[in-house]
């Protein structure tokens, strides 16, 4: 069992969460394979920024209304 499978084995919870986490884990593994820990950092930062960007857009729109 390689590290990827060993971690996946630990990630067992309810179906939806498991699926979501597994996908995130797969993203992390793919990033690590691509460029190591720096790439993991970049991938997660990009992931978070995508969410943050959406949030900021909504916030700016609402700020204009008040």
């Amino acid at each position: 069992m390689n590290y990827k499978e060993a971690v996946e084995k630990q990630l067992s919870e309810d179906a939806d969460e498991q699926k979501r986490r597994k996908l995130l884990w797969e993203d992390i593994v793919a990033a690590y394979d691509r460029g190591g820990e720096d790439e993991v950092k970049s991938a997660l930062t990009a992931h978070a920024e995508k969410i943050t960007k959406d949030f900021k857009e909504m916030l700016n729109q609402l700020m204009k209304k008040i």
């Binding site: 992390i28 690590y32 720096d38 790439e39 943050t52 949030f55």
Partner: peptide, 25 residues
């Protein structure tokens, strides 16, 4: 490999980004 990935994850600073977002909200 486990430690390397953990370092990469920690460097992503997701919790602080979440906190930033929570504070903004």
């Amino acid at each position: 490999v486990y430690r390397n990935i953990l370092t990469g994850i920690d460097d992503g600073k997701i919790p602080s980004k979440q906190k930033e977002m929570d504070n903004a909200f």
